[in-house]
């Protein structure tokens, strides 16, 4: 019997090292989680950690805390049991058999991980989320997928949470000062916290101004999903005011691949095809009157359809690039779903 190796290598499709030892290690890990969960539940149920006022445990009025504590062993049990079940179910089976999902296994997997593929088109993402908003002129209004918005949300959350912690510390320091005590350590902590809190608010407000000052971008499309070889009407509407030296509408295909590197999961992205559908120069947008333009977008005949699996995807999107005169340049992304071209099958 060959002993397990801690470091494996990827050789083409295969990894060195024993699959059986890997599965065994996985099973031991999940079994340890189940045991830890059961032990914790045992301690809570048998009263070693109790809510009886006479015992050394939690007071009876804090029964909710006891229930809350059940969450930890509950999570351990759920995570460990599901992992152990998955490992045992796949033990000794080929990857094709595991992926084939038979009988009850299929039901369990479907409950845990809903199939996001379009009906009748395996590997093609659904476009349900892209067709639930009607357009004002064309049939569908495409949802925006903007990294700017996520940055704004992230900065907002950071500023809110940081300043909430700061407020708690400040209130404690205030109470101490009112009662005549001076906690120098607390005050020394508050000063840098205050500086970071103010910086967080400033960054958030700056990003909010940058995001909202340019004006909203709206894209509508005549049909969805799209098919290679066909053309579609697209409406671009840009709000805001002032001069835009450049505004462009691009059609792009992006490949995404996520992989593990050590303990990190990384995602690599590459634009593999881009076409500038239309470009405008020296636009002057008046306040309250949005700029509107109709363009025709054509998906090339031999193009790859949208594809999405667990770690890999091919994504189509419309990208609006803008360069306002008084504000930084922006890019706003509108995802599309392209289905494979229907083919006539003979034989």
């Amino acid at each position: 019997m060959r002993l397990p190796r801690f470091f494996g290598k990827k050789r083409g499709h295969r990894r060195t090292g024993s699959q059986a030892w890997g599965s065994f290690g996985e099973a031991v890990f999940y079994a340890a989680l189940v045991l830890a969960g059961l032990s914790f539940v045992g301690l809570l149920v048998t009263g070693v950690v109790s809510f009886d006022a006479d015992a050394a445990g939690l007071p009876r009025s804090r029964w909710w805390l006891w229930l809350f504590m059940l969450l930890i062993p509950g999570a351990l049990l759920a995570f460990g049991a599901s992992g152990l079940t998955r490992t045992v179910r796949g033990w000794g089976k080929s990857e094709e058999r595991r992926a084939a999902k038979e009988g009850i296994a299929e039901l369990l997997d479907t409950m845990g991980d809903p199939d996001k593929a379009a009906h009748g088109h395996p590997g093609v993402p659904t476009c349900e989320d892209l067709v639930n908003s009607p357009g004002t002129i064309l049939r569908y209004r495409l949802p925006i997928e903007s990294p700017e918005s996520w940055t704004l949300v992230g900065l907002g959350l950071f500023a809110a949470l940081w300043n909430a912690v700061l407020a708690v510390l400040a209130v404690n320091a205030g109470i101490d000062l009112l009662s005549g005590r001076v906690e120098w350590v607390l005050l020394a902590v508050i000063v840098p916290f205050l500086a970071i809190g103010v910086a967080g608010i400033v960054l958030f407000v700056r990003r909010l101004v940058l995001t909202t000052a340019v004006g909203t971008t709206q894209v509508e499309i005549s049909e969805h999903p799209l098919v290679p070889g066909r053309s579609y009407d697209v409406l671009l509407a840009q709000g805001g005011s002032g001069a835009f030296p450049r505004l462009a509408l691009d059609l792009e295909v992006e490949e995404l691949a996520s992989f593990r590197q050590g303990t990190d999961t990384r995602t690599e992205r590459a634009i593999v095809w881009r076409e500038t559908v239309k470009e405008w120069a020296d636009l002057q947008i008046a306040p309250g009157i949005r700029f509107e333009a109709h363009v025709t977008v054509t998906i090339p005949m031999g193009a790859m359809h949208s594809f999405a699996s667990q770690h890999n995807s091919v994504r189509w999107r419309i990208v609006v690039h803008g360069r306002p005169e008084r504000w930084p340049a922006f890019a706003r992304y509108f995802p599309l779903v392209v289905f494979p071209r229907p083919t006539e099958v003979h034989g």
């Binding site: 080929s94 094709e96 992926a99 084939a100 395996p122 995404l256 992989f259 690599e268 699996s309 667990q310």
Partner: peptide, 19 residues
């Protein structure tokens, strides 16, 4: 075992679909 499958190759982890 006889199967007709698709799989991904490249930078990302391999995904497998069994038809």
């Amino acid at each position: 075992e006889r199967s007709v499958v698709w799989y991904t190759e490249g930078k990302g982890e391999e995904d497998l679909g069994v038809h």
